[in-house]
């Protein structure tokens, strides 16, 4: 058996990774199976949840420590349709992601 040299292994790795069978572009929906369409729907919903959390989190910081004023403001907007526990969950998730991103940027050990 021929011994693989490091550059051969690297090429093999790259080939293995490049063979990934993904096509999640919205232009190719017709090529996806029913299950893949459902998976893609869920994936996009989850990504949207992260963005929503970040937006809510930004909004919340604008009211400082005043929960009441924040609540009053929310009640005047369409965001009041979202249950408060859902809003809190979205914000917690966003804060968690932000913190991890910050750690990464600062090069802190995980």
């Amino acid at each position: 058996m021929a011994i693989k040299r490091s550059k051969d292994v690297e090429a093999l790795k790259q080939q293995f990774i490049n063979n990934v069978d993904v096509d999640t572009s919205l232009n190719n929906l017709t090529k996806l199976s029913n299950d893949q369409l459902v998976d893609q729907f869920v994936s996009i919903s989850q990504q949207a949840a992260l963005f929503q959390g970040r937006i809510l989190s930004e909004l919340r910081t604008r009211f400082g420590n005043d929960d009441r004023k924040f609540g009053e403001y929310i009640s005047t907007t369409i965001l009041s349709d979202i249950p408060s526990h859902t809003r809190t969950r979205l914000m917690n998730l966003a804060v968690f992601f932000e913190r991890e991103l910050l750690k990464q940027k600062r090069g802190y050990p995980i």
Binding site: K13, F16, I17, N19, V20, D21, V22, Q36, D39, S43
Partner: peptide, 14 residues
Amino acid sequence: SPGRDSIEMRTAML
């Protein structure tokens, strides 16, 4: 890993 063939799944497999 994601529930599909993905770069994440393949690179972790290595």
